[in-house]
Amino acid sequence: MKDSPVANANTTEASIRHQMNAIFQTVFDDPSIQIFDAMSAKELEEWDSLSHITLVLAIEESFGIRLKTAEVGGLLNVGELIALVAARTGR
């Protein structure tokens, strides 16, 4: 029996989220980090303009994508980041 599109979407988003969580833990050198959609630089103090670019490079390498200038600058929280990666990877 085939999975429904909704179930597939949930699975792919969960896999991106899982991969993204591992990237955040590595970049910020903190294995206790648990990401959530509304998480932004306000919730994660180490997320500054320097670590943002380290994060972008790690995401690009991990997901095999290249983010655009406007996308790099315009990202505000984890939810937007996951949605962007999902759209760019076509998952």
Binding site: S49, I53, T69, A70, G73
Partner: peptide, 23 residues
């Protein structure tokens, strides 16, 4: 300035010198 100077410049420099001690 952040969008069009800082981010692209930092990205290029980080790709060229990826070692953590140069960050």
């Amino acid at each position: 300035f952040k969008f069009y100077i800082f981010n692209p410049l930092l990205k290029q420099l980080s790709i060229r010198w990826p070692k953590k001690n140069k960050a």
